[in-house]
Design a binder for these strands. Structure first.
Lengths: 319, 319
DNA sequence: ATAACAGTGCACAATAGGTGCATGATCGAT
DNA sequence: ATCGATCATGCACCTATTGTGCACTGTTAT
């Protein structure tokens, strides 16, 4: 992953800094120490003869020049990625390092099989998989730590101030729409049903993720679509916890189709039909320009096949 | 000069190699040792996962992929230069290192004053001047050893297979047309004249530079324009030598207006009028994209002023 | 006031990257 | 064929860039 980029790593660091705003966070994201980041940025300014940073309180801030440079660097990076992809394609050759990133379920269900496939078909390719939250995945892409990320598409909701879909730094392709199923206790009156609608569930006590998380906004969006206001009884972070809560009869919850139940007791998984059928859109994101790379193309193909298989494995899926 | 470029220096090395074809020459031009160049190129291939070179006899040759990459890198470099220039301009800041290159007379008459001016107006700017032949100047630009070169424009003659004027790697601006004067012995019948035409000189024994040199082709071009075939009696390399030859009565020669006689004995310098008036076009060349840089702009301005002053210093100039 | 936090300078350490020389391989000349 | 010249490359060694860990300063929040 590191240094296969022809762009000066210090400029990459600057870009990461532009994204997260503090030296410490930049250090964490790039894998350097804060001192190293500080030194890199100082050296960058010296070499370029530009003042890129100013002190701002106890932190530092980009100057106008710095912002300008970062903004312009998008196109530069994209052009390099494009060139590299074209050269690889033209020469029918393959890159030697490949970094993958994705959030938990994606990592397990999509990235792991992809990595396995690549490992067998391209023995000399070094694949590295990183599990990380969607937002962090984009950061890791910018930081050149990974080359491809599987994330849930931001619904360009109230929260996301910037539209990630047309970010000039990334290109995204839809892999699948992962429907959200409902998990209810086995002894619940609705447990024997084949499918259920959101309206029927509106009055149930709900278990969700903490407010502000990606899934929480998905959750509220689904219910506002049908005009209901569900009662949130409990909050969980891990799927495991949510399933356990439901199993204990504390309420019902939404679980992505991709997330496995693996033998959880006292709960049933049920399809949701009708209006406001919730789903999360899972997309693959790469740095702009790199999408033409043969390895990226092959990976996207493998992911697509895998995604389709996951969906068609449940023949009664009504998405 | 070194490493103010955000593009990986190994890619720069590859570009230089693409230009000169051998590791040794690349080493000489970049200032590295041959081992270093070899190691750099090997590392580049490893990092990119591309085979860029193949053995070819006792040397190495670019593969198709390598040529592709080099060709595409032109645009990448240009974009970086452009971005840097724009950022410098936007932030009203100046770069800290500046490399100048030019051939002998240009270096003395144009670059030296420019360097002096910059040194006084920008005390903290490190200026480095390299004297080098025009062809080498372009190489040095590619190698990022210099940022601005003053060269005689290739007349896109028979010799130059590739048109340098529209090379995607460079941008050129005309500084001045340096007329060629004739140097004749003081005791020559024509020595008392104010001006002379090429026709009148056609039958003289001529002293030129070695065949194949830039000036030699200029020389022949001038005479073919008037339909004459001058007799070449002697060849010199340095202007000093040519002047000495003429002073010794061995023949007559052409000397650029820019080249000073400084007190040479037994010779007179004389304007040439009429058809086929020979001159060499002197241009400033920079890497494409960098022309918008404020420092480049200022330098071009200074050079232009200096060039105009040189021409107008001889008020009877009839160019 | 005090604690927590952000960034930076410094001594030290690791390591990337350079040089110089020796080696192997190829071509052109005798 | 043989020899020398030319090129590239591998290796041992070295240097100097670059990263780490820690201490220190300045700033904000409690």
């Amino acid at each position: 992953m590191h240094n296969r980029c022809m762009i000066d790593p210090r400029l990459i660091t600057l870009r990461v800094f532009a994204r997260c705003g503090t030296v410490g966070a930049t250090a964490e994201l790039t894998g350097f120490s804060p001192s190293a980041v500080s030194a890199q940025l100082r050296e960058l300014q010296r070499v370029l003869g530009m003042q890129l940073l100013t002190k701002d309180g106890r932190g530092v801030r980009l100057t106008a020049t710095g912002r300008f440079l970062v903004a312009g660097s998008d196109a530069l990076i994209a052009q390099w990625e494009s060139l590299r992809a074209a050269a690889l394609e033209a020469g029918d050759q393959v890159q030697s390092n490949f970094g993958l990133g994705g959030f938990s379920t994606a990592a397990a269900q999509l990235l792991a099989p992809l990595a396995a496939t690549l490992r067998s078909t391209r023995p000399l390719l070094k694949v590295q998989v990183l599990e990380a939250e969607p937002a962090r995945c984009f950061d890791l892409l910018v930081a050149e730590r990974i080359d491809l990320a599987v994330v849930v598409a931001m619904q360009s909701d109230v929260h996301s101030d910037a539209h990630v879909e047309d970010d000039p730094r990334f290109e995204q392709t839809v892999l699948l729409d992962d429907p959200l199923d409902v998990i209810i206790p086995s002894d619940h009156p609705l447990a024997s049903r084949e499918t259920v609608t959101l309206d029927e569930l509106a009055s149930e006590p709900w278990i969700t993720e903490a407010a502000g998380s990606t899934y929480h906004s998905l959750f509220t969006a689904a219910f506002t679509a049908v005009g209901a206001t569900p009662r949130i009884a409990h909050e969980a972070v891990e799927w495991e916890t949510l399933i356990a809560f439901v199993g204990a009869g504390l309420g019902v919850g939404l679980l992505p189709r991709l997330a496995p139940l693996h033998g959880a007791e006292n709960v049933v998984r049920m399809r949701i039909t009708g209006r406001g059928k919730p789903s999360r859109r899972i997309v693959a994101a790469v740095r702009r320009g790199s999408i033409a790379s043969p390895l990226i193309q092959e990976s996207l193909g493998i992911l697509q096949v895998r995604a389709d298989r996951i969906l068609t494995a449940r023949p009664d899926d009504d998405r």
